[in-house]
């Protein structure tokens, strides 16, 4: 474990906490895409299939449980908690899951490191995570009304991806045989998707203004 990986995991954890804070205490999920959250449930459920069969560290297992549990509870809140559900922008959040999932399934079947069930599911989760933020970014574009917590949530999520890239560069130079093109390319694509958002986030921060995306 290097400092970049730890920073990445902590930013990821912080992003989830910010979102749970918004949902749990303010009882609002305005501006949050249920589609993206459901895709994250699928991402973590397919990636952490090995949670009971392969043990890396207590840290890893604990974090897997946290990410699984938090993503499930966020979706539960948005779907079934009356007060929270009322604030959901259902009409604006129209992205189709299958539109993103189908290409990822096909790609995972075609391009993977090993053709085993676990490995293909793992690879699918990498591809899907790369694009899972898209419904959220589309929703932001549509509502344009971004509150601080939603902005911070997406900022932290993008930060997590940025730190993981630094982690891969660090590992590449310090560990022999550490070459994982599939992880790197899908991770890079994922981080690039945040570039536009980051640009406007920094602009609003620099000018001390409320975050607003252009139409």
């Amino acid at each position: 474990m290097n400092i970049f990986r730890l920073a990445g995991d902590m930013t990821h954890l912080a992003s989830v906490l910010v979102l749970l804070l918004k949902i749990h205490t303010i009882k609002s999920c305005a501006g949050v895409s249920l589609k993206t959250q459901e895709l994250y449930v699928i991402v973590f459920a397919t990636r952490y299939l090995d949670i009971f069969t392969s043990f890396v560290s207590i840290y890893n297992s604990l974090m897997k449980l946290i990410f699984l549990g938090s993503s499930f509870s966020i979706v539960w809140y948005m779907r079934y908690h009356k007060a929270v559900h009322r604030t959901y922008d259902r009409e604006q959040d129209t992205f189709r899951h299958w539109f993103l999932m189908l290409p990822c399934i096909l790609l995972a079947l075609l391009i993977h490191e090993k053709f085993t069930f676990f490995e293909v599911m793992w690879t699918f989760s990498l591809y899907l995570e790369a694009v899972a933020i898209l419904p959220q970014l589309v929703l932001l574009q549509r509502t344009r009304n971004i509150d601080n917590l939603t902005g911070q949530y997406i900022f932290l999520l993008g930060g997590y991806r940025g730190f993981y890239i630094l982690n891969w560069i660090y590992r590449y130079f310090t560990e022999p045989h550490y070459v994982h093109w599939i992880t790197w390319i899908s991770g890079l694509v994922q981080t690039l998707l945040y570039a536009d958002f980051f640009y406007y986030y920094f602009l609003s921060w620099k000018n001390n203004k409320k975050l607003q995306l252009p139409a």
Binding site: S54, V56, K114, Y164, H180
Partner: peptide
């Protein structure tokens, strides 16, 4: 061994 160490990430 190569694909083992990719799975130690989250």
């Amino acid at each position: 061994e190569e694909s083992e160490n990719a799975h130690d990430e989250l």
